[in-house]
Design a binder for these strands. Structure first.
Lengths: 327, 327
DNA sequence: TTTTATATGTCAATCGGTTGACATATATTT
DNA sequence: AAATATATGTCAACCGATTGACATATAAAA
């Protein structure tokens, strides 16, 4: 594999000059520049990023830590992060923490070892000491980490409001909220608060269930949905905290012979692909994942360059209507 | 950030000795080993992987190139690849080619630059000159690359057979196969051949449609499904080349008022999460994605170490029954 | 007691770039 | 003609490890 030295030799220049071309430093004539690029092509030269990063003391790699890869919300997020990173000439090192604290910490260590420019954390416990005093910036998406760590979230509170208002507007009077994860405090908890506020305002009855971490881990919510519907049989409207849960709620209703949207209306959250793949499709609160991902990467890069970035950025949500809340 | 030198100084040893501890070379006393590890913990030392890779002339990184991240098949694949890599102390650099040849080539270049140990290619055109003479091993999953490149696939032919037999056994007489991508030759094409063989054997009528690349790119198959059902109205059984297509077929049927599985049975391929999330659930041909991913990573690592690996490995598929072909 | 295994030190080259200081040589302005 | 901008060369240190050759010292085995 060709090195800078080879390129220098073949082009009759010195490594200094070739390096100048590569890094756009100092004075370089057009002719030299062309010649160098020609030789690079000819030798099929690719700069060794290891050596480069080592010397420059920084890499073009961003670590991304998620609790799930197959979860549609995270695969959508990862996809958009990769795209945004690509446009800024960054690469993604992908880590799946499976929500486990030890793995998160281990992955943070691996990010350190690899001298990533920044880490985007979409997983993460509230209280990890390890998340401070890092040598690179940390950006979170829809996660809380205490003070001083930049966070990106959507307007969860408003999402809860929109969801409840929509269900009530469609005639539901006995609402049920199925939460995401209990235990860990998360921005998503505010969905519930918005939901409650609207229910109270309109005097609608409501109940809530909070699946334990275990449900989130294997993405299998059927038991708790069944149980909730048995416990609150008068329910005529469900606000699920993700489209994934909503999809499973539709299935449970089908099993129980409950017509959706006839006698049960269901609204989800996220607006991921599955929301459009169920029958009926899932009405949902859309998170602008693309914009959030772009912001995360942009902030990661800026922060890595030593610039200040906002501590929190909140993105707007919108209601997307599909069949599951049809009239 | 602490370096080897710091660890050496703090522990009263030399870099040579500390490096020996780190790499398990030569003679090291238990006492020294313990002391070194203690100091490392104390200083929060993390070896610089850049320097290490540079010096060792190889990294612990595997490049993964996929055409889609949000597609459930690929997110499942990526998830399993990450897990398998993690277990072997490797990291994943993730690239999304979006099926575009230029991006594939660019990503291959980036993998070169980053001196990855190997590349696992789940995307990839048939005929790219660039895929030869690489400085690292290339492993493909469900893709063809001509001679000499290690490939992993599932038993697509048998998958087609199982699917057709199941539909026929369930009483379907007018079958329709909806293919994956046309244009690009792929292992998945053999699904169709298996399907055809069985149809001919049992004298069942069958038709086939091949979505163009465009459908695959945005994963939106509704138009072609509608069109196919209009063109072949007598169809009573669909073999879709992915669960994603099958999910959309269910929706199209719902829209057209066709009862699934009553008057139309549908079988998919892959066995990804969405197959279990639709109503009814999708009967499908399961690919052992976990095993395939593990094999891919194991082969990547072995090949990177200079060992020979099989040119092709074929994994068995199985029928998974759900509601979409119920009696 | 000599040999050998164990344990560590010393020193320097190497991996493939980056960068800065300084020198040199044209070409262009003033 | 002097000053300045442009273009390249020379040289060496540096990033943070790994590795090999060789020396040295102690402990255990022959």
């Amino acid at each position: 594999m060709a090195t800078l030295k080879d390129v220098a030799r073949e082009s009759g220049l010195t490594v200094g000059t070739v390096s100048r071309v590569l890094n756009n430093r100092g004075y370089i004539s057009e002719e030299t520049r062309r010649k160098v690029y020609a030789v690079m092509r000819e030798l099929n030269y690719q700069p060794n990023e290891m050596a480069r990063s080592l010397s420059k003391q920084k890499s073009n790699t961003i670590g991304v830590i998620v609790p799930h890869i197959v979860h549609p919300y995270f695969s959508k997020l990862i996809s958009n992060l990769e795209q945004a990173a690509y446009e800024l000439k960054y690469k993604i090192l992908l880590f799946n923490s499976k929500g486990k604290e030890e793995k998160e910490e281990e992955y943070i260590e691996m990010c350190k070892s690899n001298r990533v420019a920044a880490v985007i954390l979409c997983s993460g416990s509230f209280h990890t000491e390890q998340f401070r005093n890092l040598d690179f910036p940390l950006i979170t998406i829809e996660r809380f980490l205490d003070e001083g760590i930049a966070g990106i979230e959507c307007d969860n509170y408003r999402g809860g409001i929109l969801a409840a208002e929509h269900l009530i507007e469609r005639g539901c009077r006995h609402l049920l909220h199925i939460g995401g994860i209990s235990g860990l405090p998360m921005p998503a908890d505010k969905r519930k608060q918005g939901f409650e506020k609207v229910c109270q305002k309109y005097g609608a009855q409501y109940n809530e269930v909070e699946p334990s971490q275990a449900y989130y881990d294997d993405m299998h919510y059927y038991p708790i949905i069944c149980q909730a519907l048995d416990q609150y049989p008068e329910t005529d409207g469900i606000f699920a905290s993700s489209d994934l849960i909503a999809a499973q709620a539709i299935q449970v209703c089908a099993m129980k012979g409950i017509d959706v949207p006839g006698s049960m209306k269901i609204i989800g959250f996220d607006d991921v692909n599955v929301a459009a793949l169920t029958t009926p499709g899932i009405t949902t609160i859309r998170q602008p994942v693309k914009e959030m991902a772009e912001a995360a990467v942009a902030m990661a890069v800026k922060a890595a360059a030593g610039n200040a970035v906002p501590a929190t950025s909140m993105f707007p949500v919108t209601l997307v209507e599909r069949g599951s809340t049809g009239r």
